[in-house]
Design a protein around this nucleic acid. Sequence first.
DNA 1: CATTTTTGTTTAAACGATTAAACAAATGAT
DNA 2: ATCATTTGTTTAATCGTTTAAACAAAAATG
Lengths: 341, 341
Amino acid sequence: MKRISLKDIAEVVGVSTALVSYVLNNKKEGRINKVVAEKIRATAHAMNYRTNQIARSLKTNKTNTIGLILADISNPFSAALARVIEDAADKFNYTVIFGSSDEKPEKYKKILDALINRQADGLILSPPEHAEPQIAALQQQQIPFVLIDRYFPGIETNYIVLDNYKAAFEATQHLIDCGYQRPGMINYASSLFHLSERTRGYMAALTKNKIVFKTEYLQQVNNIVLKEETEQSVENLLQRTSPADAILFGSNVIAMHAVKYINQKKFMVPQNVALACFDETDAFDLFYAPLTCIKQPIKEMGDLAVDMLLNIIDNNNNVKIKQVSLDGELIIRQSTKTHGT
Amino acid sequence: MKRISLKDIAEVVGVSTALVSYVLNNKKEGRINKVVAEKIRATAHAMNYRTNQIARSLKTNKTNTIGLILADISNPFSAALARVIEDAADKFNYTVIFGSSDEKPEKYKKILDALINRQADGLILSPPEHAEPQIAALQQQQIPFVLIDRYFPGIETNYIVLDNYKAAFEATQHLIDCGYQRPGMINYASSLFHLSERTRGYMAALTKNKIVFKTEYLQQVNNIVLKEETEQSVENLLQRTSPADAILFGSNVIAMHAVKYINQKKFMVPQNVALACFDETDAFDLFYAPLTCIKQPIKEMGDLAVDMLLNIIDNNNNVKIKQVSLDGELIIRQSTKTHGT
DNA sequence: CATTTTTGTTTAAACGATTAAACAAATGAT
DNA sequence: ATCATTTGTTTAATCGTTTAAACAAAAATG
């Protein structure tokens, strides 16, 4: 079954391909004979013609495609973001090509190459550690892109992120306000700025409240052996002479592992330990003490990312750099019920 | 910043574009002067050349792209499937373009068109209700595709699905074996075959065990107002003179809504009501009575789908139709602990 | 009625790659 | 020395669009 091309329609109708193209694209509005135009349209429809986007893209240098790289599409946060971006892109007739970096720079690079080779008009990226060179290269090649969720403070780029410092600060402050005096934190051992901002926010809240920071209260876990290290970290925080009485988790994934473990070990929440975490997740609603969490404005982030990106694309990269830091929303639930009652 | 083309390299090196193409694609292996070849490669690298896939695709009629349509990428089941497919595709150097149908035929159609226009080499589809005409059209146009998760019994297509009948049967049998005598079910009000198979499996298990089926025990919920109807259904099942003592949920989404409601209403699981559901989800691990569930072989499904699809693509559609029904795995947990102890 | 303008359509180049076929020069065979 | 083969490279067509420019015929203008 051969695909129908403009040429096929042109032959059937007995006109040139140019005319067919003009008609089907509604160009040269007034100038075309209505009867002929209608005939062309009818024939195109009858023959089930569909534009060959590849050919069009080659000519117009436009693919109407957005490349998206996230950490892991199967993680609820990534998935939700992907969904928002997909919907936003669709509104402007853009299609999304995606890949999961798994936080691995090599994989990230590979996907990035694939997206560029496929001539994506622009990119929305959530870069892993050590992706600075690739980001710089994109800038140098003037490829339109927007960072989302993360950015590198050393490089001037467009980005949309959560105000992680503020969010962590507020969450920690909330724990303290509830009467918890030894809040610990479990966060990724990572050089990613957005993650260290979370740690910084946590520490700042301690300082502000004159709580002496102890290194043992800040547990760092490695993404590769996340489950094991998270469990160990929970142990480290809770099984000590002066155990943490609250924990802030650096992400929903960490929280998930931790809560499962805490559940299994029968620590009581919030009596033995209060919990709060980044990223809202349905899952925590089922826990007997639903988790207080920092809800990221995913919809806003995705919409903004697409808007910004399309703006850059449309204006051929001549757009002032825009860096957006959005506020999270602290959703308070059972897991941080006021202490000491 | 102009993108570098073969022509640019050819000019710099002082050869024809053809030669550059041959070298960079490792064609005409033996015949090319090693020195020249090396020079071309070096120049290409120095100029940061990247193949214009669009141009290549136009000529070769191959995009190395798989189109993927799922119900909703932000649903964990879809996301997990997407991830597996992405990884599998990547192994064969294919990239994935995706869209979420939201179970809406019009949206599905729109995405489908976009994917076809973009000349995806093949499609992996999870079609919504009423998508039969589109499927038939694909066949007629000889576009390679594989259905996943669902299929239409009236149309002979390649597909990979869960054996939903068997899975539902086994889950129901398990409930009965645990001593529950009035198992109900909440499933989608949908004409989708895979969903009705679930219902059929449930009913067959009742019959097999000589349990009289009562219509009130089978609650149907509408996807558009899922939360409300699910809650109502739970009510309908549990607040009656002879309430259901167990419930099988037709999906993780239904289960999620239901469990939240059950939790809120303080029904005890499994004492008041045992629960089992389709689709394994992390979330249910946090519930005080983790849910017994039917785990779909997502990895296998995704891998198989990609394998089958690439096989069809490579063999130009001259492949025998393959219809695969995979077994689910019943994972037994607290929510169906033996009754009556 | 000659000229200009408008209307309707076609011609042809271009996008950036691939690749069969042609070609020239070097090497080998007789 | 002549012809055949091998080696290395180029020519040119092609994929399916888009679109500026050219063109022809019809209508309007003076």
